[in-house]
Design a protein around this nucleic acid. Structure first.
Length: 839
RNA sequence: GGGCAUGUAGCUCAGUUGGUUAGAGUGCUACGUUGACAUCGUAGAGGUCCUCGGUUCAACUCCGAGCAUGCCCACCA
């Protein structure tokens, strides 16, 4: 073994060994129990690069998967990729544009061939990157949201939902990007804060406020709140009003959607260009008239302004109303959020469009709608969300869910299985007969991802895998896609399979830069996981994202942090190196060896405790806590103490090996590469499939206490040397006297001598320094004498606080007796210590 | 506007049912390099646990109010 662990020398070869073993595939795993652990990889987009967020998700998932595999569970982690329709199409567009090609020139078929070429290449790159992290994914089951299986599932679902009356075609308000010429999903909208003039107009009997006067051409309804006293006497009446294009008739209705506090409390509605207004229009059966078209220009409803771009029309409308004296006030400091397309930053238009929708409100099963089913299954506790607080977020979103627009006006994606002939249309995969043309649109990319937990397992066929691995045990993903993905999976699965998609949702936080900013291309503050792996190794990168992170809470990541964990990985390497250097043919130690000395007992008891706690922590998703405890044990208990003891007390081969082997097993899910590399020294099966350690843990109080005393003695002597700038290597004369611990100290004399670098003597006279510990006196021969002022002050303060507590009758009366006893003991010992020091 | 989080050592963060003289890593300082490890060791300095109230014998921990920061949703009346 080399002096330092160089990750890049080993990682690739180790990964190949794992792959060749076939053990990533649960069908090949030996000695399985009945438990199932299944998890599906949230499919990365086929647009190319893996980012640090992916690395984090892989670290958490691989941790769980490796743990369960070692426990003997039938463990499946299924990989795959997502077509990311819009993103991918845009990237290919860009690539072609660089060659001077426009996709409309070459046509749909040729364009899709280009997309195919691009995604093929991309998949290979991503796969390699996923593997670099050490992900133990079952590649034999690799899937893609556009492969034949997925496609079949998507088509079948569409048809079933249509037949169940859950998918319909309708003219409804959608989010539209006039530049991209497509509908957008909610998450594809960004907001820019902007100052816009906000106009107040005289509109018959009321004043209305708006930032978008150009949409107001055909507003003919005034809405006020039913309890608004100001307008009580005009509700239900009709008024003739002077408006943009002359006189119009407008009636007043009362609805709770009007906010009394907002503006004047009265509003007019524009059903074709607002979700809220559209719903109101349906409720009251109002006419829905389009004012803006898909190109972002005014329609014939705007009369003379037909064809004008939105911005221009706004200015003109204001001018007209000004001339008519209908402007009451203009607020120039109004700030609002402008919605823009996330890709081209064009202001989006909510507008009426003929699209395909999923009806989330229609009662289907036992009178429950899709969204009610999806809500209920979480409410009933059938799906557990970690951290819990996201339940609330989930319900809020689900309860307010509107019909889901699933058609997209792009070429790449699952094509909508609908055929048109004049005004007729038919659902089906093939043209019904001559003269029918297929819908040119494709489905929202989330439609296929929503089926991911079961389409990957072979659904709609009733496969063995589906039966065995569905529902998934865990869904691990970032909280940022709780709505877009997690919620939609729950919705689709409860409807299609009558079950949940997974038992537990573990939502990790997002990775941020050192300043807490989101990582983005424009800021150029991204951390490339591959760079980090190259510099520090995959294990260090994984640890840096597991330890110190809490689910649902963002985490900052930066070089120094990863470097710190690289140091730990190296420490683990050197611990092993030290142990293995002296052992020629290291055997596997199956049984817990019999302890011979105090420290043997201690380390084995601590190890039992660690095995116990790590198992519990991993079962409870406390990854960070598990990692910290492991790290503490490995570095401090085992390396700093026990290995040093082993240099003094000989013949510890068995215990050292036993501890090391267990440490490696416990670490393996966290740091698979270095542990597997070290494990090779044992010349046996891969660590990957070693059995997870089990231990019956009972705290050995006495041993732990005794060791603490010895540690404290050594610590005090070291501290003394340090404070007096005595070379730690220099052995000084020492005498330790303790009635209470006489036996213990005598037995551990050699350990103390070696670790504290002292020489025992019986000649008390020559020893001019005394250190104080409860029930123990340490005499040292040293030139200097330290000042105790600060220590005395501290102790006096502490004693005072303890005395106050114990003099408090309420405390004595109310606190549990063992607490009182403990406090009394503390006081007694501290007092003793103080008098000794004062002397 | 509605909701959710976060606020603990210079920095990054732990702190699991209320009882610790409040912890880790990193950075800093000092001394060192002992049979593995300078990607190391030993020790030190450094904290009104955001503020104010309340519950309690006891609050970093529970409750309320406030301040600060971040995020999500709604909003172009």
């Amino acid at each position: 073994m080399e002096k330092a662990y160089e990750a890049k020398k080993f990682e690739d070869a180790i990964y190949s060994e794992w792959i060749n073993s076939g053990y990533f595939n649960p069908d090949n795993l030996p000695n399985r129990n009945k438990e199932i652990f299944s998890i599906v990889l949230p499919p990365p987009n086929v647009t190319g690069q893996l980012h640090i967020g992916h690395a984090a998700m892989l670290a958490y998932q691989d941790l769980m998967v490796r743990y369960h595999r070692m426990k003997g569970d039938q463990t499946l982690w299924l990989p795959g990729m997502d077509q990311a329709a819009i993103d991918t199409q845009k990237m290919v567009d860009k690539k072609l544009k660089a060659q001077g090609i426009d996709r409309h020139q070459i046509g749909r078929k040729k364009f899709l061939r280009e997309v195919d070429k691009f995604t093929q290449e991309s998949k290979i790159i991503i796969k390699k990157q996923l593997q670099k992290m050490g992900s133990s994914l079952d590649w034999s089951r690799e899937r893609y949201t556009m492969d034949s299986g997925s496609t079949k599932a998507v088509q079948q679902v569409f048809i079933k939902m249509y037949n169940d009356g859950l998918i319909y075609r309708g003219k409804r308000v959608v989010i539209w990007c006039p530049h991209c010429q497509s509908t957008l999903a909610d998450d594809e909208v960004e907001y820019i804060e902007q100052k816009t003039p906000f106009y107040y107009f005289r509109y018959g009997p009321v004043i209305i406020g708006t930032a978008r006067p150009e949409t107001k051409f055909s507003d003919k309804v005034i809405v006020v709140h039913p309890q608004d006293k100001r307008y009580k006497n005009i509700v239900g009446k009709e008024f003739e009003i002077e408006w943009i294009q002359g006189k119009i008739k407008a009636k007043v209705i009362a609805d709770i959607s009007a906010d009394m506090e907002m503006g004047t409390g009265a509003m007019t509605i524009t059903p074709a260009h607002s979700f809220v207004d559209f719903e109101l229009a349906q409720k009251y059966n109002l006419k829905v008239e389009e004012i803006i078209n898909k190109a972002g220009r005014m329609t014939s409803a705007a009369g003379k302004l037909e064809g004008a771009p939105v911005k221009e029309a706004r200015e003109k409308v204001v001018e007209i109303l000004k001339k008519k004296g209908l402007i009451k006030k203009i607020d120039k400091n109004y700030i609002h959020n402008l919605s823009v397309c996330y890709r081209c930053r064009t202001p989006i238009e909510p507008l009426l469009s003929e699209q395909w929708f999923v009806n989330v409100n229609k009662p289907i099963k036992k009178g429950k709608s899709l969204k009610q089913l999806a809500s209920q299954i979480v409410k009933n506790g059938n799906i557990k969300i970690i951290p819990e607080r996201f339940n609330k977020t989930y319900f809020q979103w689900m309860d307010n869910l509107r019909d889901w627009c699933i058609s997209r006006q792009i070429w790449f994606g699952h094509r909508i299985p609908v055929w048109y002939k004049k005004d007729k249309y038919k659902i089906g995969l093939k043209s019904p007969s001559e003269g029918w043309t297929q819908d040119p649109d494709t489905l929202d990319t989330w439609f296929s991802s929503a089926l991911w937990t079961f389409s990957t397992l072979g659904w709609p066929e009733k496969t063995k895998d589906l039966k065995k691995f569905h529902p998934n045990t865990v869904m691990e993903t970032g909280y940022d896609i709780l709505f877009f993905w997690v919620a939609r999976m729950i919705l689709m699965t409860t409807y299609l399979l009558d079950e949940k998609p997974f038992d537990t949702v573990y939502l990790h936080g997002l990775i941020r830069d050192k300043q807490g900013r989101k990582m983005s291309k424009s800021l150029d503050n991204g951390i490339d996981p591959l760079e980090m792996i190259k510099d520090y190794g995959a294990d260090a990168l994984r640890l840096s994202m597991i330890v110190g992170s809490t689910p649902g809470i963002d985490m900052k990541l930066y070089d120094e942090k990863i470097a710190g964990f690289r140091n730990f990985v190296n420490k683990l390497w050197n611990i092993s190196r030290f142990i293995l250097l002296n052992i020629k043919n290291p055997k596997i130690i199956e049984k817990r060896p019999k302890p011979k000395t105090l420290f043997d007992k201690w380390i084995l008891n601590k190890l039992d405790s660690l095995i116990d706690s790590t198992t519990k922590d991993l079962d409870n998703f406390n990854f960070s806590i598990a990692g910290m405890a492991l790290k503490h044990f490995t570095w401090h208990d085992f390396a700093d103490w026990y290995l040093e003891i082993a240099k003094v007390e000989k013949d510890k081969e068995e215990i050292l090996l036993y501890c090391l082997q267990n440490i490696l097993k416990l670490w393996h899910p966290f740091t698979p590469y270095v542990t597997e590399t070290i494990w090779k020294n044992f010349k046996t099966d891969l660590l990957l499939i070693q059995k997870w350690p089990e231990a019956k843990y009972k705290k050995d109080e006495k041993t732990i206490k005794n060791v603490q005393i010895i540690q404290k003695i050594i610590f005090e002597i070291n501290k003394f040397k340090n404070e007096h700038k005595i070379n730690p290597k220099k052995s000084i004369e020492c005498l330790i006297i303790s009635e209470k611990y006489n036996d213990l100290i005598n037995k551990q004399a050699t350990v103390i001598e070696k670790l504290a670098r002292v020489k025992h003597t019986t000649q008390e006279k020559s020893l001019n320094t005394e250190l104080h510990l409860p029930n123990i006196k340490i005499y040292l021969k040293a030139e200097t004498r330290k000042s105790n002022d600060k220590e005395i002050a501290n102790l006096e303060k502490y004693i005072e606080s303890l005395e106050n507590k114990l003099n408090n009758k309420k405390f004595i009366d109310n606190a549990p007796t063992d607490i009182v006893k403990k406090e009394k003991e503390k006081l007694k010992e501290t007092k003793k210590l103080l008098t000794k020091i004062k002397k």
